[in-house]
Design a protein around this nucleic acid. Structure first.
Lengths: 257, 257
DNA sequence: AAGTGGTCTAGACCACGAG
DNA sequence: TCGTGGTCTAGACCACTTC
């Protein structure tokens, strides 16, 4: 039987189990009931239980090994994809007050890197936006985002004081489904320095991100630069599911922008 | 029917499909055959096909949407967990020549942070090791690793010129299954500066990592500092599987070591 | 309306861990 | 040896996309 509306059974179950784990019902290092038992308790088949547990496994909430009950891992800080893709939602989930303002915005031709990342022809019309992001009033990040023409038109039509662009896009039916992030170091250029109120040349944590919609079509390509000490990125990976990659840096250093 | 020995059918299938995709059989943006068709072609059930496709989905190789065939995403650079957990294997997979040497090593009492990360009592005996890692002879990373007593004993018994500690541990039956990584910025202390031949205070990309065995028992806690421009970390995440987390930096800055 | 992926079930056998 | 998770099957219905 499938679900009638929004949330699948296995997601509900995963949420329930996650809550139990976080509430310490099994204790750190404790053992979950067997799949069989969970199936019985929750009135679903073992297959559905396994789907739920696979989620928790990927999140690093529990282990899994043949022959042994699943063990509770360290309390994880799990964030939803939505919170990851949106600075605003992330900040809110932390209880911080997000702020943001558009510093500059212009239509222009995509350079080689941008065209490649957005899967457009070189020279295609794109909207480039420079934003300053704040947390509790403090400037923490400079964001340079490029949108393909269709998306850019929507972004351009949003009120200039829109805090969450993501939510603005969603309201127009543009959903985000996939993101690739690359993390490394960069140094503050004059714009960064001015906006973040730090000397030029200050080292910053750089996140370059390409986000796509459910079709696989790129929706944005962004380079975000965080002041040191304001954020850290964490990744969980396991034999079962690998999402992190470490790569040799062949960076098209600064000159590309 | 289960498999008789090592590799599950769905993993073989995933590997085959991944190879096809990378070989450009479907073309970027192309569409995969339907699950039904794949099941038929490969002589397995739809369930098995779906397991294989779930792997590729998590890797960011293909999309998936109800109602439409799966679409090939950008060529991904997928790394195995083994390559992520071992500097040596990572380097080899890139065709680079990894090097490494133990600079210092000592048994000592775990400080608060170390005990917490390794899930030990404060003051427990741990082995602390300082290593310099090189790539093609160039120093690229300084690694400070702490091992719980049992693991440390093994590490201590390895020949001092052992290039891959991970492989040494595996030879003794210690397997790695899970890792949590935290990425942010740090600044070179005098040791870093000397080893990496850069001025003290140079910004470095810092990776703090806790690796666990299949039981969930922490095996190592490490702080690695990379010279800027030598590596970048990439993460893929999606609505389906989220592994990346962005968190507020509450760093126990430098003084903890 | 037809095709496709998403969800769910019920049952089977296997491989591994622990007693 | 027994309990547990890992793998696989066969079939069902649903929700969404596309025509």
């Amino acid at each position: 039987m499938a679900n009638s509306q929004g949330t699948a059974r296995y997601r509900q179950l995963a949420a329930a189990l996650r809550a139990d784990v976080l509430a310490g019902v099994y204790g750190e290092g404790g053992r979950l009931p067997s799949e069989e038992a969970l199936a019985e308790t929750h009135g679903v088949s073992r297959g559905t239980v396994r789907q739920a547990l696979a989620l928790l496994r990927a999140e690093g909430v529990v282990t899994s090994r043949r022959g042994t009950r699943r063990v509770v891992l360290e309390q994880p800080r799990v964030q939803s994809f939505a919170e990851l893709s949106s600075f605003t939602r992330w900040a809110r989930s932390l209880g911080e007050e997000p702020g943001g303002s558009v510093v500059a915005s212009e239509w222009r031709a995509a350079d080689a890197v941008e065209a490649d990342r957005l899967r457009l022809a070189p020279g295609a019309r794109v909207l480039w936006v420079l934003r300053l992001r704040t947390l509790g009033g403090e400037p923490v990040m400079v964001e340079r985002t490029v949108y393909p023409e269709a998306v850019g038109a929507l972004v351009d039509s949003l009120p200039p004081d829109t805090v969450s662009v993501t939510e603005g896009l969603e309201a127009h039916g543009i959903l985000l489904a996939d993101a690739d992030h690359t993390l490394d170091l960069a140094f503050a250029d004059p714009d960064d320095a001015r906006l973040l109120t730090c000397p030029a040349g200050t080292p910053l944590l750089r996140e370059r991100r390409r986000t796509s919609d459910p079709t696989g079509l790129p929706v944005e390509w962004s380079e975000d630069r965080y002041r040191a000490g304001t954020v850290a990125f964490t990744v969980h990976n396991s034999l079962a599911s690998t999402a992190l990659t470490r790569m040799r840096d062949t960076s098209d250093q600064e000159q590309s922008r």
